[in-house]
Amino acid sequence: MKVKEMQKNKPVFHSTKVKLDVSDRTIRGFTYVFVSIFAILCIIPFWMIIASSFSTEAAIRRSGFTLWPTNFSTFSYSLIFRSPDQMIGAYVVTILMTLIGTTVGLFVVSMTGYALQRKDFPFRNGISFYIYFTSLFSAGLVPFYYLMVKVYGLKDSYWAVLLPLLMSPWLIILMKNYVKAIPHEITESGKIDGAGDFRIFWSLIVPSMTPALATIGLFLALGYWNEWYYSSLFLGSQVTYRPLQYQLYNIINKVAALKNSLAATQLVLDDLPSETLKMATATLATGPIILLYPFVQKYFVAGLTVGAVKG
């Protein structure tokens, strides 16, 4: 019974029935103004990116970004969708990786996080250090690449992107910290009922940590959605469909990469991607997750709660 009660760790909404005093109203008024201003500041640049993606190249050359498209044009988009299977393939790869990676990663991260915060687990400090240490020392590019390619044989394999992003010391320690807030009595009561550690975790802890799972899940999903680094290293030209953000990264950074190298002074290069093309790619690569984020979050949290009830 007690456990059930504790599971109700719903977001902290203040009951509207309680009368608001002056300080509440001050805070609330301030909040609406302050948060709105900041949110608008955050959205304007993105809006400008979308607006310029619908402008002609010549129109934004001098005036830069504008709030409304100058000389409306869908040229950049028609350029991108000239080979639609490329774009669709990129979406499919990105979405699949995000779904699989987030699910598996979330499971492992939360399991580890739970074990590491158990005060009666004698190895918790040792393992914590073992994990944390890797965030300080990374071997650097060559040894990592060498291992991935020559020992694990992951060149041109989607695993090379999926696996390294499954977890990070940061996510595990964050998770550990979140789980810590769940009263230890839940674990104790589970033990008294004779449940094993994994059962306690799966059927008692998981249901009571939906906010934490949603947050870590969000970070994992963002990590996969925004991934370009491993793709750029491991997914070479033998791979047909490269993730969305990698394509974006590639298009956007190409110019700068060339301008800073001797190659730019020596070769005759093809036309470089135009500004509007960059903007259109950015819109396409970012747009979906922004639009979907509220829905995904809603169903994700709901799904977790349902799963927990069944479990």
Partner: peptide
């Protein structure tokens, strides 16, 4: 929900942009 989503947007904009 809306403001949270909006505040997330800058995170997606690459440094070049």
């Amino acid at each position: 929900k809306t403001t949270q989503s909006m505040m997330f947007l800058p995170y997606f904009i690459s440094d070049v942009l």
